[in-house]
Design a protein around this nucleic acid. Structure first.
Length: 479
RNA sequence: CGGGGUAUAGCGCAGUUGGUAGCGCGCUUGUCUGGGGGGCAAGAGGUCAUGAGUUCAAGUCUCGUUACUCCGACCA
């Protein structure tokens, strides 16, 4: 450990002070900077590059499952927010309102969207008349504003970027299917693109979305054992469609309200991958979202032919669709090694006179720091994609092993506290009463995370109150 | 919103009983270097967060404000 720290400056010890480590990493690797307004962040090019890759991969999956993108306005009449009772209660405390334009007060306050259910429902009520208009499968990429009391880059900011899918369906079954299908899309994406193993399941009523009938989530376990809600999907039933008067004439000649879903992930995913994969050296980025997948570091650049060869390799890789950077700057090689490890670049390629003479490159993997490998130069184009797949899998398995070793099965309140205090999720039975959740929150800052789909019981009594219980649920501390 | 901490060069920090603004890294130029954060030499860079107050004199003392940060409360 002490040896490892020699390579890192100005990053807090990941084991001693995880929150500070996180802040140090996001700032020092230039993912973000703070904006001038409290709680806002600037997403810098290196951070935005990750978001662009996340968008690209997710958008592909949304299209494949039949969704189209649209864009709705960010200003919403205040009266819309009020239409769904639970919804307004949940969001009102944190919405930003526009009340004036210049010196003139507006006749109606405007909400800066904290989420878009209300305005989208209003539009849907105009667009849907017949069962032939269903299903409606629309997604939007947007920013939203929630004036949170405490903020942290990516994890909780006053404004953040996300996508929100909003769908209408003719039948309850179809809407329920959509809700679970999109949760599945998120889970697959988390695994194959972010290398993050997640816990999927249904939220308790206390934790569900304001206005939803049911909320499902994927929870990611961070290296401090806390849970980060990394994506949610909601089944609304007809709560919103009734509140917003969305009606269609069905084939049987009867006016009906369609069943509705919504689902979203945000820039918080970037926080998730930082805290899942990062280490004392800084970031460790999964290859499929890394803005730079491979960095080429020329050695002894002054010697003839070195930079030329490096340029040649770079062009070949770029042509093959690999996001590659050649760093021919004036820094020493050692400096570059540390810099790109901190920035989490998955593969580093060293190219010096010795390599060129032998027709090979020396390379290292960020997920296996310290080891060096070689391969023939001409193999790079075909081998790198395989390497990325292997790195992603290795990172996923490492995180999965961490998850598995940090879930403790519990049967009492004391065991929940013990498990959570030592950096674990607690898996146990729950009676379903809100009072038990309130008690956990008050006594030990623990919340229910979600109820896994595999409901094989691990007991028959509620961990909190000891009464009969038939719900298996994860307890934990959350970001 | 409550409690703690912080604010001095781009970054990280020192600045003693109040008395001419400092260090490291980074940056610029030159040179030798180059396979794990190089050496030497010469430079540039400051409204001490902000507003009042005390004082002959404030980076330093007092009060307010703001921002960041950590811990809570709140939080699809």
């Amino acid at each position: 450990m002490a040896k490892e720290k020699e390579f890192v400056k100005d990053i807090a010890d990941i084991h001693e002070n995880f929150p500070q480590w996180y802040t140090d990493v996001v700032l020092k690797t230039q993912l973000v900077d703070y904006g001038p307004v409290k709680g806002t962040m600037v997403i810098r090019p290196y951070g935005y590059g990750i978001w662009e890759n996340i968008q690209k991969e997710l958008d592909k999956r949304f299209k494949e499952t039949g969704h189209e993108n649209a864009y709705f306005p960010m200003f919403i009449p205040y009266s819309y927010l009020v239409k769904e009772a639970e919804h307004v209660e949940g969001f009102a405390p944190e919405v930003a309102l526009v009340t004036h334009v210049g010196d003139n007060e507006l006749p109606e306050k405007l909400v800066v969207r904290p989420t878009s259910e209300t305005i989208i429902c209003d539009m849907y009520s105009k667009w849907v008349q017949s069962y032939r208009d269903l299903p409606v499968l629309i997604n939007q990429w947007a920013n939203v504003v929630r004036w949170e009391k405490t903020t942290r880059p990516f994890l909780r900011t006053s404004e953040f970027l996300w996508q929100e899918g909003h769908t209408l369906h003719r039948t309850e079954e179809e809407a329920r299917e959509e809700t679970l299908k999109m949760l599945g899309v998120y889970e697959e994406f988390a695994k194959n693109i972010l290398a993050i193993p997640v816990f999927t399941g249904r939220k308790s009523d206390k934790e569900k979305f304001a206005g939803a009938r049911e909320t499902y989530s994927m929870e990611a376990m961070m290296q401090d054992g806390k849970s980060l809600q990394a994506g949610t999907t909601h089944f609304f039933g007809t709560n919103f469609s009734e509140a917003f008067n969305i009606k269609y004439l069905d084939s049987d000649g009867v006016q009906k309200s369609p069943y509705q879903t919504s689902w979203g992930v945000s820039t918080r995913l970037i926080g998730a991958l930082i805290m899942t994969h990062g280490d004392q050296r800084g970031l460790c980025l999964p290859p499929y979202v890394a803005p730079i997948q491979a960095v080429i570091i020329p050695i002894a650049m002054h010697k003839p032919g070195v930079v030329e060869k490096a340029e040649e390799v770079k062009s070949a890789l770029a042509k093959a669709g690999i996001r590659v950077k050649l760093d021919a700057s004036n820094q020493t090689p050692g400096w570059k090694f540390n810099e790109y490890e901190m920035k989490g670049v998955p593969v580093r390629i060293e190219l010096g006179p010795r390599d060129i003479e032998n027709g090979v490159v020396t390379y290292s993997r960020r997920d296996k720091v310290g080891e060096k490998f070689t391969m023939p130069i001409e193999d790079l184009v075909t081998e790198l994609p395989k390497l990325f797949a292997d790195i992603n899998e290795n990172m996923y398995n490492k995180a999965l092993a961490f998850n598995n070793s940090h879930v403790k099965t519990v049967s009492t309140k004391e065991e929940i506290k013990e498990a959570v205090d030592t950096g674990n999720f607690a898996l146990g039975m729950w009676c379903g009463d809100r009072a038990c959740e309130d008690l956990l929150k008050e006594e030990m800052q623990v919340t229910t995370r979600n109820m896994p789909f595999d409901q094989t019981p691990v007991g028959d009594k509620c961990c909190v109150c000891g009464k009969c219980a038939n719900k298996k649920i994860y307890f934990g501390r959350a970001y």
